[in-house]
Design a protein around this nucleic acid. Structure first.
Length: 583
RNA sequence: GUCCCGGUAGCUCAGCUGGAUAGAGCGACUGCCUCCUAAGCAGUAGGUCAGAGGUUCGAAUCCUCUCCGGGACGCCA
């Protein structure tokens, strides 16, 4: 096979060309081909690749699907890369590749190397992925980890699809909670100056990580802040505290290998007049009005009083109720700040935005999407990925966590115990909208029961063979261009076919914003490789390295090089190490 | 009360934006190391895809309702 793009893409192009030919010949009226897809059939007996083209086109063409399938098959048989092109009820066309076509894909893998699997569907378009965005009031804990890993892997995946990705963190540095942080820090500042502060009041952050911030303040300001009133010292203390909290958070993220490049400050968005612009713009569109909200249902709100305030007509965009943008006293709500922030992103050139949120914010999706649509006249697109809760298990028992009791597990503790790779892989080995169990005992287990290990082990095994091959004098200076004619065993071809699916999986995973598909794919590829390996135990003629037969050995070395390449490319998307050997 | 997310083998979960006889792993039973990492592989058993309707050539997948589990609802952030 030749041409551009990966195997599946090429086949689809050929298919579309065949359809066009049939259309021109007047045999088959074809108008819309958007539903035509190529995929791996579930049943091996159905060949290597299948298409639903005939089924999709049957109705508009007013012809029986099987008849169309026959026409397509007849057309596609002209292509020499297929061993068989068959039709099957109710109207599938199944393609079986010639071994030469299969191994040609291995040549592609080796030629493209670290770029194998990339695609250009993003076409350099800017996309903004915002994740973590934890309040800068303390260290990250386990609740933040899933979103952090998910967002990071998604960003990698989008880059893999040719998007121009910005990894962003939104700093909530304008709300009441950072004032609480400042007061809590001020307490630690007085402590650092030798005062006995006693028990930390309930309305302050008790964490000891603030002691260092208090000391830093003492060093910077001496005792000078003590004489000032709160309104005088608070802004300075807040600024220092937020900056140091953010530094700590960035260090936490580094533990996971995460580095974001843009840190958006809520305060700065506000200072640039973001809120005023939101109100103006929505007002111009007639989407603001003064009104009274219904009291919230299902939750007793003791101090509820109906009050007139400025509301945004978000129901016009699918929200369940209109939302307040101003409090009764006229000050802006958090929501309006968030709208300003998202509009800020849009104005920075991101018409495509992705937010990664925790499950507890699920109720805010509709209003935020409504706001983006309203503010950008539908030109901005916001996808919000919600990561469900992580249940931490130790020996099969749920680890109960409480912030108050100080028993919540921090990111550092988690990564320290489970390791970066296991943490990242396991956080991605589940789709984002399902609750995830994270079992300490399992994620560090060195066995096939642990998918992280299983995949990494496959890579390590591959590398060990390659090291052994490097030691073989028989193979020296013979690494010329290969036709891989020595690779004809079905199990060998299976591994290559599995490799060939990678670009297809990566592209679809990126389109769906679902990095977990990469993790599951890698497990399958690892499995195909482990199978081949074991086959060599059973049948010595399948062993990879054979000094008696340099030609076949070199072909197989190429195969293994390909496996290790695809595994490491895929693990790279997940941000997981592809190890040379297991320790 | 309303909204969001789940419900698939005994357990934990995939199922690629409607396709073929619904797939893995664990657990259970049975096998495979004079041989590149057995840290692995092979085989057997196991399902009314929560339930009921609907849409169509075709539904685990889409729509409606019901049941079960989780999360959420504010002028907080």
């Amino acid at each position: 096979m030749s041409g551009s793009g990966h195997l599946f893409e090429r086949l689809r192009h050929k298919l579309l060309a065949a359809l066009e030919a049939l259309c021109k010949a007047g045999e088959l009226p074809v108008s819309d081909v958007s539903g035509v897809g190529v995929d791996v059939p579930k049943e091996r007996a159905h060949g290597d690749i299948a298409t639903n083209a005939a089924l999709v086109l049957a109705k508009p063409a007013r012809k029986p699907p099987l008849e169309i399938a026959e026409m397509i098959a007849r057309e596609m048989r002209k292509d020499e890369s297929f061993e068989k092109v068959e039709t099957a009820a109710p109207g599938f066309v199944n393609f079986t590749l010639k071994p030469e076509s299969v191994v040609a894909e291995l040549t592609e893998v080796l030629r493209e190397g670290e770029n194998y699997g990339k695609n250009t569907s993003g076409a350099g378009k800017k996309v903004n992925v915002e994740y973590v965005s934890a309040n800068p009031t303390g260290p990250l804990h386990i609740g933040h980890v899933r979103g952090a890993v998910f967002g990071d892997a998604l960003a990698n995946l989008l880059e893999w699809s040719g998007f121009d990705v910005c990894r962003e963190y939104y700093i909530n540095d304008a709300g009441l909670q950072v004032d609480v942080l400042a007061r809590s820090t001020f307490l630690r500042y007085r402590e650092a100056l030798g005062e006995d502060i006693g028990k930390i009041p309930d309305d302050m952050y008790p964490g000891e990580y603030l002691c260092a911030v208090g000391k830093a303040l003492a060093q910077e300001h001496g005792e000078s802040l003590l004489e000032k009133s709160e309104s005088e010292w608070l802004p300075a203390v807040r600024k220092t505290a937020v900056a140091l909290m953010l530094k700590m958070i960035k260090e936490d993220l580094q533990e996971l290998g995460i580095v974001q490049e843009y840190f958006a400050s809520e305060r700065e968005v506000l200072e640039r007049g973001g809120v005023e612009r939101v109100l103006e713009r929505l007002s111009e569109k007639g989407l603001l009005y003064e009104g009274v909200l219904e009291p919230p249902k299902g939750k007793e709100v003791s101090d509820w009083q109906p009050r007139e305030q400025t509301l945004f007509r978000s129901t016009a965009f699918g929200d369940d109720t209109d939302r307040a943008l101003k409090k009764a006293d006229g000050s802006p709500t958090y929501f309006v700040n968030d709208i300003a922030y998202h509009f800020d992103k849009f104005e920075r050139g991101f018409s495509e935005m992705i937010d990664v949120w925790g499950a507890d914010h699920g109720g805010y999706i509709k209003r935020q999407q409504a706001a983006v649509e309203a503010m950008t006249d539908g030109k901005g697109c916001l996808d919000i990925k919600v990561c469900q809760l992580v249940r931490l298990l130790r020996d099969g028992e749920v680890v109960k966590m409480s912030k108050r009791a100080g028993t919540f597990v921090t990111l550092r503790e988690l990564v320290g115990e489970a390791g970066r790779d296991a943490t990242r892989f396991m956080m991605l080995y589940r789709k984002n909208d399902a609750v995830l169990d994270f079992d300490f005992a399992k994620v560090v287990e060195q066995s096939k029961d642990n998918p992280v290990f299983y995949v990494q082990y496959a890579h390590a095994r591959a590398r060990s063979v390659l090291r052994a091959a490097d030691e073989m004098p028989e193979l020296r200076d013979k690494d010329a261009a290969r036709d891989f004619a020595g690779l004809r065993h079905p199990k060998e071809l299976d591994v290559i076919k599995q490799m060939a699916v990678f670009p297809h999986v990566a592209e679809n995973a990126a389109k769906a914003h679902e990095p977990h598909r990469i993790a599951f794919y890698l497990y399958e590829l690892a499995s195909a490789f482990h199978v081949l390996w074991s086959e060599g135990k059973r049948d010595p003629s399948l062993r990879f390295l054979n000094p008696e037969d340099c030609k076949t050995t070199l072909d197989r070395v190429g195969l293994i090089r390909g496996v290790s390449r695809v595994l490491s490319n895929g693990l790279g998307i997940l941000g997981v190490e592809a190890p040379e050997e297991m320790r």
